[in-house]
Nucleic acid binder design. Structure first.
Lengths: 231, 231
DNA sequence: GGATGTGAAGTAGTTCACAGCC
DNA sequence: GGCTGTGAACTACTTCACATCC
């Protein structure tokens, strides 16, 4: 576990989930050559209220200018600092099926300090092939030193994979398998589950709730309708 | 938008996100031939407190037995009803790259009433090929009638794809592109963003928060360490 | 003037603690 | 005895409203 740093006060869970969205918005504006943005604009693009944006950003220290909003460059930088993007960390991916392949080849996955250390699979047909500039290694061999392990294997194998990763001293897991993992204290598990997202969407459709009822995203849930167009 | 039904009282957003997890746990137990489970056990497997489980389930009507817990079959059924799994709905997928392919071939994505209606792509090399028992159609042609549109295209194309889907009367979107969408009122957008999940995990690692500090999943966030083993 | 940053108020979600029932 | 279901207390998050500063 990395050393804690107390540069910013402790951020709330919903705030942490929104920061990457704000950062992406900042990137979009920077790309367009715009260098100022205000909480109102960030809010409309992110699907939250301007007040929420200001509270979130205030937690990173006061770097806005009253009357003029935030400087896009500084905004991006501060969020990066808060999320620890100045640190590099190694990621191993276990399971090089369609999903694993999609992840490592995505321009959106291994960013902000994440570095692919190695790829593993149990399938002899896949081991030895080249994927994303790495030769796929056998999962029963030695495991590279890494901070995060990404699990992209079938549900039934996920627990076994988690155990082997933990044994190899990987104590942060991102699990794409539809399987709750049992892990010892000291290991963080984060779940990504596509079908749950679909199911939440359907619940709202069936019940007429969600965006129409004014419902809001709860750590990347349903977003408020968003009429503003980026200039 | 489907007709609302008021079988159960309105559920809170965090509850809705947890129900699919409970349901999966119920499935696991049913598969093992176990037919009773209590809130304590569900909680340990899902990474939440027993009280939270009981509150969530109480929202679906009282179907537990004091002193004996919940019947696994009834639990599964009630959650299915609450989430609208008895209804079938059509899903179109736009973008048949690695990710789109991974999704439609996953045994975990198109479940619980979701039915793949059609696949679209703009790439002439992909259009016409067979994927998951469907011939990939050109995105500039007519779009099938569907309830949900899944967007698996590069970030820069996502807004255009969303607009065309909305024009074709698809008013619920699941967006896998790292891009906030601007949509008219009446359209629900739900985001799935891999890199954000990684970033949240890293934040906690850098700050020593998360599972060690007793932090808890916030709609599929970091789960509490989970020592219990399924019998 | 105009937008930030923040006390204070309001709302939502979780946890406690226990009555109620099997 | 044991576990559910729930009022009451508590905690967390959001929104209001406005003083503050450019």
């Amino acid at each position: 576990m990395a050393t804690p740093r107390l540069r910013t006060r402790r951020l709330s869970e919903p705030t942490i989930a929104r920061l990457p969205v704000y950062q992406r918005i900042a990137e979009g504006w920077a790309l367009r050559g715009l260098n100022r943005i205000d909480s109102q604009q960030i809010g409309e693009l992110a699907g939250v209220t301007a007040t929420t944006v200001r509270r979130d950003l205030a937690g990173l220290g006061s770097f806005g200018t009253r009357g003029a909003g935030y400087e896009v460059r500084v905004l991006h930088e501060r969020i990066g600092e808060a999320l620890g993007h100045d640190r590099e960390y190694d990621v191993v991916v276990v399971g090089v099926g369609n999903l694993g392949r999609a992840l490592v080849n995505s321009s959106n996955f291994l960013i902000r300090g994440a570095r692919l250390a190695a790829l593993y699979d149990v399938d002899a047909a896949v081991v030895g092939t080249r994927v994303a500039d790495h030769v796929v290694l056998p999962f029963d061999g030695p495991i590279a030193r890494a901070t995060v392990g990404v699990i992209c294997v079938p549900a039934l194998d996920a627990q076994m994979v988690a155990e082997r990763l933990i044994e190899a001293d990987v104590h942060a897991l991102l699990n794409f398998a539809p399987q709750v993992l049992t892990v010892p204290i000291g290991t963080a598990v984060h779940y990504v589950d596509f079908s749950i997202q679909l199911q939440i969407l359907m619940y709202h459709l069936n019940n007429g709730t969600g965006p129409l009822g004014g419902g809001l995203l709860h750590s990347l849930g349903i977003a408020t309708p968003n009429q503003l167009r980026v200039p």
